[in-house]
Amino acid sequence: MIEVENLSKTYSGVHAVRNISFHVNKGEIVGFLGPNGAGKSTTMKVLAGYLPPTDGKIRIAGYDVITESLEVRKRIGYMPENVPLYTDMRVNEFLRFRAELKKVARRRIKDRVETVKELCHLKDVGSKIIGTLSKGYRQRVGLADAMVHDPDLLILDEPTIGLDPNQIRSVRDLIRDLGKHHTILLSTHILSEVELTCGRVLVIHRGRIEASDTPANLTRLVRGGGSILLEVKAPSADVVARIQPLPNIEDVEIVLPGTGDWTVAKIFAKPGVDVREDIFGVVRQNNWPLRELARVKATLEEAFVELTQD
């Protein structure tokens, strides 16, 4: 659905995006993840045909973004960051206006507007002036606008920013639902959101793509995908000294050195190896009283921090 090859974008000498390439297949929900100023919005603006790329080739649904811009724009629903809307219009009026602009057949306009209002929970504000709506509602009007012509591809720049937790959940469900029939590229900093909605994550940092994988695989990348938490009654030095030499152990980190006599250690093993049995062996040999031996899965947050740290 999206094919980006060697895309670069420079704003008056500053590289916002450097030579990135990625593909998004039909039906995928892809999350664009990265710190502020990483180049997420810029990339999305270029994909939506709003900004021209400095260099590179982009095809959406087989059409070139620059030379066949109109065809591309017919097929995408783009929701920009900060959701700029005509604040003097009423919600119904605005959605009807946008549907007309996006060439929705006249007889289907009413139907489509009602449908997207239903989906975005805008039923009760249809006759309100957009300027009087709260941030959360405006956000949803922007989302409704992006979907009003039932596009093949949705490009959503921070769709849940400014929403309250309930609204975030409902937008998340909505996106997951939409993902059954649409291709979606969304950007966000909220990691739990990516984990719950996206099939694949593109981590972008300083204008470069640092990783592209499923959320699960990304977390596996981080120090073998997780660690083992061990809490025993023993001196910290002993714990490190006995466990470190075991096979397949990469690192032993003391989290809490002896509250009382208790030591909490984080043990990192080689990827794909379960070392819990070996560790338990050590504990039994030394007769350490054991309080906890648990596997801790790495979070996407850790992956994110690791990938985007300077």
């Binding site: 603006k45 939506a48 045909g49 709003y50 109109l70 724009r73 017919k74 995408i76 783009y78 920009p80 900060n82 700029p84 809307l85 005509y86 604040t87 946008r98 602009l101 996006k102 060439k103 606008d145």
Partner: peptide, 14 residues
């Protein structure tokens, strides 16, 4: 100024 040009130019309008 309001940024609405972004909405306008990304709609399929010449």
């Amino acid at each position: 100024k309001l940024g609405t040009i972004e909405m306008l130019l990304t709609a399929p309008v010449r």
